[in-house]
Amino acid sequence: MAEHTSEHHIVPLKYYFGVFALLMVFTVLTVWVAQFDLPGMWNIIVALTVACIKATAVVLIFMHVRWSSKLTQVIIIAGLFWLAILLIMTMGDYLVRGGWGVLGVQPN
């Protein structure tokens, strides 16, 4: 392991099992929480937070990003940044048109 190929990192299996357990627990959690009628937008906020935690765990451990090069990490952050541009700038337009309610005719 200590030779020149040390950047070739082998992740110990216990990490994989840990992430697996976390994913299963959070899947159950998200279904369980979803049956309660939380006030306001909290249902979707909780659901997305749980999904983000699950996704982060997969990215960091299963996809080895915790141990990968800076460049890989920059690429991922860039991807999220551009996705945020697309979502925020577009939603910004809709939001400031006077709230979600005035978005046009509602079909039946």
Partner: peptide, 21 residues
């Protein structure tokens, strides 16, 4: 894993949206 991550988002957004009612 990426395809898995997409599903991690699709499941709550599509299936669980109306679960509480």
């Amino acid at each position: 894993h990426f395809v898995d991550i997409v599903w991690i988002f699709l499941f709550p957004l599509l299936y669980l949206t109306g679960y509480h009612v």
